[in-house]
Amino acid sequence: MIWLVWTQHRRQFTYTAALVGALAVLLIVTGAVMNSDYHSALAHCGTAGDCGNLGLFQGSGWSALTTTVPLTVGVPILLGVFWGAPLVAGEYEQGTQQFIWTQSIPRRRWLLTKIGWALSAAAVWGSIVAASVTWWSRTENALGHHRFDPFKFDAQGVVPVAYAVFAVALGIAAGAVLRRTLSALGVTVAGFTTLLLVLQSFVRPHYLPTKTANLPLSRLHGGLFSGSWQFGGQLLDPTGQVVGHVVGGNDWNIQQAIPVNCVLNNPDSVRQCLSADGYRMVVHYQPASRYWTFQFIEAGIFLALAAVLVLIAYRAITRRDA
């Protein structure tokens, strides 16, 4: 049975392995050069904080890569479309499953072997892409500390592996239920995209309760929020009344006039002045230390859903007429 699966899908496997390998080589090579550029800049400016303002990615080939590399979040969709959706649906459309089942190979063994190899391949390819992107992104992460941003969070760490397994499982389940490849393709793309957007917008921010910081405005540009996921907050006057809103932890919208002595041209000077007058900020955020916790929580969600989809595919094939 294993040899049969390899014979049926060796071209898909070979082409996918070649593309994933080429992407990994590109990321490793460019990542090494970019990291070298970063350390050269670091040697001239002294600290990583100062280097963040050197425009290392401005006006160079790196700027294009920093825009396109996060798009590897689409790799799981491609795996689900080209591997998961046709895996079972294609068999039904061509009628080849009937021939296999009449060769003393039961449905259960046929299905589990195909699913096992498909999900294992998805996990391997997803791991290679995720590891390559994470390694490549280490320089940008050191400069920007924005790993909670959706396209960065979704393309790095362990979640891309879970995404790949889920997308392939979704394609298999859709193909087993609908028995039409094109229909399974549509369900795979729509289902994966919808679930990811819902988690990004409504679920992910609440994996753990947010923390609240009540600090002087002079701390606004300090290292407290470096790498954190900020949800805004409030600006309080000396009496504790809300007079404005913190925007992203780095700026604010003031809803009433500030003291005359603090009307200055330099924003940093304004912060120092308001802080001296007793103004404070309340910021709601997820600390940077929770990054990997969030990664594993989301990966667990997708893997659990993948297991449910495998069960759906199993029941659809073993309990329905051929």
Score class of each variant (00 low, 15 high):
residue 42 L to Q: 09
residue 112 L to Y: 00
residue 297 I to V: 15
residue 144 G to F: 12
residue 289 S to T: 14
residue 258 I to S: 02
residue 299 A to T: 05
residue 183 S to D: 04
residue 189 V to Q: 02
residue 306 A to Y: 09
residue 28 I to N: 00
residue 158 V to K: 02
residue 297 I to A: 14
residue 239 T to Q: 15
residue 136 W to Q: 03
residue 19 L to N: 04
residue 224 L to V: 14
residue 159 V to C: 08
residue 7 T to C: 05
residue 115 I to C: 07
residue 129 V to T: 05
residue 92 Y to G: 02
residue 116 G to P: 10
residue 244 G to H: 01
residue 185 L to Q: 01
residue 156 Q to H: 08
residue 113 T to K: 03
residue 180 R to E: 01
residue 36 S to I: 03
residue 188 T to H: 02
residue 120 S to L: 15
residue 313 A to H: 06
residue 276 A to S: 11
residue 244 G to C: 05
residue 295 Q to K: 08
residue 72 T to F: 13
residue 81 V to W: 13
residue 36 S to L: 06
residue 198 V to G: 10
residue 13 F to W: 09
residue 96 T to K: 04
residue 80 G to Q: 07
residue 260 V to D: 14
residue 52 G to Q: 00
residue 235 L to N: 03
residue 139 T to K: 06
residue 51 C to K: 00
residue 295 Q to D: 08
residue 216 P to E: 14
residue 318 T to W: 00
residue 70 P to F: 09
residue 160 P to K: 02
residue 141 N to T: 13
residue 285 Y to K: 00
residue 34 M to L: 06
residue 90 G to F: 03
residue 207 Y to F: 15
residue 159 V to N: 10
residue 305 L to S: 10
residue 18 A to K: 05
residue 142 A to M: 07
residue 231 F to M: 12
residue 205 P to W: 04
residue 282 V to N: 10
residue 23 L to H: 01
residue 288 A to I: 06
residue 96 T to V: 08
residue 16 T to I: 04
residue 236 L to S: 11
residue 174 A to V: 07
residue 143 L to Y: 01
residue 183 S to G: 15
residue 5 V to Y: 11
residue 300 G to C: 09
residue 297 I to P: 04
residue 55 G to L: 02
residue 135 W to E: 09
residue 196 L to H: 10
residue 105 I to R: 01
residue 68 T to R: 03
residue 181 T to R: 02
residue 234 Q to M: 13
residue 245 H to W: 01
residue 170 L to H: 01
residue 74 G to E: 03
residue 145 H to Y: 05
residue 117 W to M: 14
residue 107 R to H: 00
residue 261 N to R: 14
residue 123 A to D: 05
residue 287 P to A: 07
residue 141 N to R: 08
residue 193 T to H: 05
residue 8 Q to I: 05
residue 318 T to R: 07
residue 94 Q to P: 01
residue 40 S to Q: 12
residue 220 L to V: 06
residue 179 R to E: 08
residue 130 A to Y: 12
residue 28 I to L: 14
residue 229 W to H: 13
residue 162 A to W: 04
residue 13 F to T: 13
residue 133 V to H: 12
residue 180 R to Y: 09
residue 151 F to Y: 06
residue 35 N to H: 13
residue 138 R to M: 12
residue 231 F to K: 10
residue 61 G to Y: 11
